[in-house]
Design a protein around this nucleic acid. Structure first.
Lengths: 346, 346
DNA sequence: ATGAAAGCGCTAACAA
DNA sequence: TTGTTAGCGCTTTCAT
């Protein structure tokens, strides 16, 4: 008794094709999947039957039998943040080119959500591998993950075996950005984006680089110029800058911990009738497309998102296809300083 | 003989749980899925066994038996375009809230890619429903789709039964944008983004609205001010504007067919040393976040992407869960003009 | 090179 | 309320 509901109009199955072609299901499977050699004559018969019936393999059944979904999941904090959108733009075509579909989820940077996702992924066979760009996750969360799920972590460095990590050297990049401002002769360099009360370490690494640059230039850090902000978006940059502008001794330069933060800061400065960079120079972080067309164009730290994305896909698929027992690697992607109008002027 | 490879470390199956709990698989299934009532005592036994074995249901097997994947696919032309990124930001949480995962693909606006995707989706059981934001697809392509696959189309109007269409009234919106510029007293209003040689109709609808506004204001259209551009991004806006600025009689206002186009145009104007809006007023289309923080802030046509996204999810799931035999509906989402500095000044 | 048949792990009709 | 069992449609071992 056929118990189970079918949702389609009754598409042909592999068995139907086999019957029509007068061969066994095995042979049809061979023709479709190309595993074993098939006589040209047989193949022709099968293909004719496939065409006649309009047969399409049922991916669900194939997955169950084969033990893989052909899907990888990519989890980012925010989809509407250009940085992540541009990253996905690189990841998806690469995965598709290698025969995988991409499931996407976004967590709003919420650590609980990120944890729940990791738990949900465990042993459920939902997808073959996971590329995760965590914001709130800490070391222990990652240690408790399902070790059989191939995992690649993006972002700041995480010393942990068992999965790959891909990122840039945040400290060095932040140092370069700050050094650029100091090198321009600026002496009151503010930093917007520090996150003291969150688990995320990205912000702390950038602050570390900011301090290093000051130390190397022999300039003392004015701690009141380090402005904490909950997120890395335009509003945060705008509001952080407004705070700084209300002071009697505003900064003469600003390092925004993302391009969005920097753009928000620029807006606040210009709105006040001040000039960028003459009065206050601004540098961002990420090199999103927007910064190439804004006025002023935005100086920034550029990381090659294209190669970061393809690298992430290649690493996760290496794990997926090898059976997930590769030792974890620490991969660094190049970054470079891109100086534009917001620090150099026209 | 167990023929098939297992990829995990040998997770417990529902059968294992049943054996340990001393009940039948049916009962375990009931506990997990909550379909039928279960005695508290039995439930406790089963849950203990589940906990002891660390049992996680295999989603693949469940899908095959149940006939659904619990996934919907969303296909957009470009992921790194803020409009689509912000749209996805609305779609994904809604789908998740309703228990579905979201597969994403992007087509680069390529009609062949879009067609291939539609064909690939047909009868493959890859996902339960498809939300498609086509760029190059024409009427006939949509007619040839798998009619059993629940489909919701986003974007410009498509008169076709069998699936829902959600969009805004492009002609009216473009008319509003243009009328705003004409109402400001501008008489040489350029339009950037017309697409004469592409299948996409979005651009043509906007041009139609642009003409309507002129007709209603009794202003004749200078055809040379309608600038065709292959895409809707910043570069297109920039280059289109550069063309216009090289003329002896440049426009005094510009309607960009997307916010990105408008921002590119603004950049070209400011780079030339001209002022926005004093010399040339600019209005865009989409209301992306960027336009609220750029200098000048960008006037635009705002469409409620949040409700568009949730509406799309609700419509596709209505089709999925009802068995896909609902008649097609034409749904219009509200739009409104948002006037900011790029047309009004400070 | 092809056939026969045993699963993959779950759901749900039927029966008790 | 719970057990028995037949599939979902495919892949793949074993045998020919």
């Amino acid at each position: 008794m056929p118990p189970v509901r079918r949702l389609d109009g009754g598409g042909a199955t592999l068995r139907d094709v086999a019957a029509l072609a007068g061969v066994s299901p095995r042979t049809v499977s061979n023709v479709v999947g190309g595993y074993a050699a098939v006589t040209p004559a047989t193949r022709a018969k099968v293909e004719a039957a496939i065409a006649e019936l309009g047969y399409r393999p049922n991916v669900l059944a194939r997955n169950l039998a084969y033990g893989r979904t052909g899907q990888i999941a990519v989890v980012v904090p925010y989809l509407d943040t250009p940085y992540f959108a541009e990253l996905l733009q690189a990841i998806i075509p690469r995965a598709r080119a290698r025969g995988y579909d991409v499931l996407i989820d976004q967590t709003d940077g919420d650590a609980d959500h990120e944890r729940a996702l990791l738990a949900r992924a465990a042993g459920s066979f939902r997808y073959d591998g996971l590329i995760l760009s965590p914001l709130g996750l800490v070391q222990e969360d990652l240690a408790e993950r399902d070790p059989t799920l191939p995992l690649v972590v993006l972002g700041e460095r995480r010393a942990e075996p068992g999965f790959d990590h891909i990122g840039i050297d945040d400290v060095a990049a932040a140092r370069d950005a700050t050094a650029h401002l100091l090198g321009l002769g600026r002496r009151r360099v503010a930093a917007i984006g520090e996150q003291r009360d969150r688990e995320g370490v990205a912000a702390r690494l950038r602050t570390q680089g900011y301090r290093q640059a000051h130390a190397e230039a022999g300039v003392e850090v004015d701690e009141s110029l380090v402005v904490p902000r909950p997120r890395f978006n335009r509003r945060d940059g705008y509001e952080g800058m407004v705070q700084l502008l209300e002071r009697d001794d505003p900064p003469d330069a600003v390092f925004g911990y993302s391009d969005l933060v920097a753009q928000g800061a620029v807006r606040a400065i210009l709105e006040r009738g001040l000039r960028v960079p003459e009065d206050i120079a601004v540098i961002g972080y990420d090199d999103i497309d927007e910064g190439r067309y804004s006025t002023p164009t935005l100086s920034t730290i550029s990381q090659d998102r294209g190669s970061l994305g393809t690298l992430a896909v290649d690493r996760i698929l290496a794990r997926v296809e090898s059976g997930a027992q590769v030792p974890g690697q620490e991969l660094l992607v190049e970054h470079r300083l891109v100086a534009r109008e917001s620090t150099l002027g026209r």
